[in-house]
Structure formats: C-alpha cells, structure tokens
Amino acid sequence: MSAKRVVTLTINGDPVEVLCEPRQTLLEVLRNNLDLTGTKEGCSNGNCGACTVLMDGRPVVSCLVLAVEAEGAELRTIEGVACGSHLDEVQSAFLEGAALQCGICTPGFIVQTEALLEANPNPTEDDIRFYLAGNLCRCTGYDKIVRAVQAAAEKRQTAAAN
C-alpha cells in the first residue's frame, strides 16, 4: 500500500480536500470518505452506469476513475443537481413521469441526462436511447425514463425560449 495522498478538487461548486489511498476509486472516496452516497455502486466495473458523475463536464463512471486522477477536477454529483431545495427539470420530470421504481439507477440516469441535454438540448428518442445505453435499469423497461428525458428537454427548451 502506497502512502496516502491529499487530493484537491471541486465538488458541486465547493472546494474539497480529501485524504485517500492511491488504490481507492473515485466512487469509493465519494461514498466512504466524503459521505456522498447519492452516487451508487451497481457493478464496480463500468457496466451499469449507477455511479455516473460529471468530471469537468464529461460523464464518467466513477468506479473506473481513481480518486487521485480527480486532482484539480470539477465534479458534479447527483447531490449537486438540485438547486437547494429546488429540483431541476430532469429531477421533476422523473418524479412526475414515474420514471423510477426502485430508484437505485436513478442518480446515474439523472446525471447522464444532464450531460445529454448539455450536449444536445433537443434530442430525438433515438439520441436519448443511444446516450443512455450505458445506464442499466432493471425495473422500468426504460419507457418512462425516455419519456421523462423528453419531457425535461421540452421544459428546458420552453424555459430557454421565454
């Protein structure tokens, strides 16, 4: 085991310093060292997308990133999606559209959707399904998730137009 290192980064807008072992994944450090347990672990090998976070604006599966690799990075996790107690469009669309059942994949889907809508504010159904294909959901059959993303995109487009 190598010596622990201090990693300095920004998480949801706040500067953070965290002491971690080089072998710890970003996922482990978020959940265990920083108690940011909204980011979920489903497989720890990058297959399920439950641990998706935005690293410098790009969606990454945090189980495949070492915490030391996040030095200097700007992270956005599910805890940073809502603005205070105000849910954002994607979160409300998931709630209103019943786009979750057990909810364990939901944080990953919401974060991935944030990245999608940033890159493509007006996605087609096919765009949505392709972009979210790395996020697994076993409960919903994806129908209501895709519809929620469509609803969120529309709401955001309408808000932008006004």
Binding site: T77, I78, I110
Partner: peptide, 10 residues
C-alpha cells in the same frame, strides 16, 4: 430518490 438522499443498504 431523485436527489440521492434515499438510504439504501450499502
């Protein structure tokens, strides 16, 4: 569940 606050077993 949409904010990551829900506590699951892990």
């Amino acid at each position: 569940k949409v904010t990551g606050r829900a506590k699951y077993g892990a």
